[in-house]
């Protein structure tokens, strides 16, 4: 027991600190997040989109496969079809709702998994260095040099196309960027004096990584995770285009866009069905944009140094 140990009314100390500082970290983060108006807006919009896609289909009787043959290419606000119909008489509104489930799920799941894998690999590689670093980084190089599409085609031939396969492919080929990013940051954090101090006191490596290194890479990781989500939503659409993604008649925002491309210059009937691209495109746009707003707000809220101007 140190010689200077003496009892002091902790309550009294906490009373003095309470007005500003005693808030738990979680409260602090929440307070700051709330004051970030754009992030709050982003969160609200995303929750709205989620409700729209998850609960929306419960209120309509038409399924995404149902066709209305009397209304092909009917424009928005046609009776019974607020967003219009496509070349087969599918209701665009219904397909946007069902497609959103798939796009959001693919985007979210692959963003989370790639970020997780990339962060873990980057932390280990950067922190331990030496042979661990060399092995992991050469593996990253190998992964980056594998052409994605031939592998994809093979995989689809073997396993068939499906949501899980898309997520699998997007994560297997998507984590390397994050890992390089994190590794670079860890290399500099590893040499800081606060990490040295922890080492000098005998803190174990695992704890140093979790306590000192990880919190300092989190802001960058969050931003890259939001970018990954946008990327995954868009990548799914290009995979669908190659026939490797979500297959019609099942809709996703991506494959709706891709199919609409065939008619963008006008149809046999002479009209330009803009609603086929605008609606799924709009949803991709607001989702990606608001995910980025949300990520921005999270990054600021998690940084104790950041004090919002408001």
């Amino acid at each position: 027991m140190p010689k200077f140990f003496y009892k002091r009314k902790l309550d009294e100390i906490e009373e003095k600190a309470r007005p500003v500082h005693i808030n738990s970290y979680r409260q602090l983060v929440w307070t700051k997040f709330k004051s970030h108006k754009l992030a709050l807006f982003g969160a609200v919009v995303l929750i709205g989109v989620a409700f729209f896609t998850l609960l929306g289909p419960l209120f309509v009787e038409v399924g995404y496969e149902d066709m209305d043959f009397s209304n092909l290419f009917s424009p928005p606000l046609t009776e019974g079809h607020p967003f219009g119909t496509d070349e087969l008489g599918h209701d665009v509104l219904v397909r946007v709702m069902y497609g959103g489930r798939i796009s959001l799920f693919v985007g979210f799941a692959s963003a989370v998994i790639t970020t997780l894998i990339g962060t873990i690999v980057g932390l280990l590689s950067g922190f331990y260095g030496g042979i661990v670093d060399r092995l992991l980084m050469r593996f990253v190089d190998v992964m980056l040099s594998i052409p994605m599409f031939p592998i994809l085609i093979t995989l689809t031939l073997v396993f068939g196309s499906g949501i899980m396969n898309i997520i699998l492919v997007l994560t297997v080929f998507g984590w390397m960027g994050v890992s390089r990013l994190v590794r670079g940051l860890v290399l500099s954090i590893r040499e800081t004096e606060y990490v040295m101090s922890a080492r000098a006191m005998g803190v174990r490596n695992g704890r140093i990584i979790l306590r000192h290194v990880l919190p300092n890479v989190i802001p960058i990781v969050i931003v890259s995770a939001t970018l990954n989500m946008s990327y995954a939503i868009l990548a799914e659409s290009s995979l669908s285009y190659l026939g490797l993604g979500i297959q019609p008649p099942m809709p996703s925002w991506g494959n709706m866009l891709q199919r609409a491309m065939n008619y963008i210059l006008g149809t046999t009937t002479g009209t330009n069905p803009w609603w086929l691209t605008v609606f799924p495109g709009f949803f991709i746009f607001i989702t990606v944009l608001n995910v980025n707003f949300l990520g921005d707000g999270l990054r600021d809220a998690l940084d104790p140094k950041f004090v919002s101007e408001s």
Binding site: T192, E193, Y194, M196, S197, R211, P215, N216, D303, P304
Partner: peptide, 11 residues
């Protein structure tokens, strides 16, 4: 340590 700005974890 030497640098009081680098020797405390900011988080």
């Amino acid at each position: 340590f030497q640098d009081p700005y680098a020797s405390l974890n900011p988080r």
